[in-house]
Design a protein around this nucleic acid. Structure first.
Length: 254
DNA sequence: ATGGCGGCTCGCAGCCGA
């Protein structure tokens, strides 16, 4: 089984890239973030034509998540339980015996912003929820844009990023809290190239110079981690014309 | 690296992302 996560930064703009990438990679499940579409405008026909079923929880302008799957997904959940949130950032469903959770973690904007406090509260609610979900679902995969670079190795220049969101000790502590639940970072289950990133700023030719961050992650329950055979970041679509600023992350397990 | 890009919108300027 092949699962993937991709922040497409507007599905309306990136639909051709998604179609090309699905045809090239043929994943069984794809979690999308930043669709920026109200549900009435979701491209259901195009996704079905590509061979996928779709669940989606969207809104205008910002956020929005979707879950595409070769076989129909069941038992959808579209919010963090017990966390009152107007923003569409969560979509969970079951596919082929795997509980899949698609996340778009808040960015936080800056350390002195209310959005940063919202991010930390959001991560606390996520942690409490995933603790229960791990008990309920031995085969659990939590994929998405976490907006956290877990370690300095996930940052092109830690000195440049010091004191900013995505790398703060509080955010990294929340990420470690997820690992402490028993989840494993699929990417780090394997030997990986130095300076592996999943996001590059549109400015300053950052992709060409590989000035990036690794902030898109696939976390796996112990059972799925034991079955995982590969996890890679596919940089290819980031080099296409008019790309998303994020690259897809893909994991395969038996 | 102190901005630069590229989404979005009761659009032509400003907000937001990361």
């Amino acid at each position: 089984m092949k699962i993937a996560t991709w922040n497409v930064n507007s599905l309306k703009v990136r639909l051709p890239h998604l179609q090309d990438w699905l045809a090239a990679q043929g994943p069984d499940v794809v979690c999308l973030q930043e669709t920026k579409l109200e549900d009435a405008n979701f491209p259901v026909a195009q996704v079905e034509a590509a061979g996928y079923h779709a669940l989606y929880a969207g809104q205008k302008t910002y956020n929005g998540v979707a879950l595409l799957s070769r076989t129909p997904a069941t038992d959808p959940v579209t919010a963090l339980p017990g966390f009152d949130d107007a923003q569409k950032r969560v979509l969970a469903a079951s596919v082929d015996g795997v509980r899949v959770i698609c996340l778009y973690v808040p960015n936080g904007q800056s350390l002195d912003s209310d959005k940063y406090l919202y991010k930390l509260d959001w991560l606390d609610a996520l942690t409490a929820w995933l603790r229960d979900e791990l008990r309920r679902h031995p085969r659990l995969a939590v994929l998405g844009d976490y907006n956290i670079a877990p370690e300095d190795a996930d940052v092109h220049d830690p000195a440049v990023w010091a004191g900013q969101v995505l790398v703060s000790p509080e955010e990294r502590g929340r990420f470690r809290g997820l690992l402490d639940l028993g989840l494993r970072d699929a990417f780090r289950l394997f030997e990986q190239p130095e300076k592996s990133f999943s996001w590059w700023d549109y400015r300053m030719a950052a992709f060409r110079r590989n000035l990036g961050l690794r902030i898109d992650h696939i976390l796996l329950s112990p059972e799925l981690a034991a079955a995982c055979r590969a996890c890679v970041i596919d940089r290819t679509p980031r080099g296409w014309e008019r790309p998303s600023d994020h690259a897809p992350v893909v994991a395969e397990f038996v």
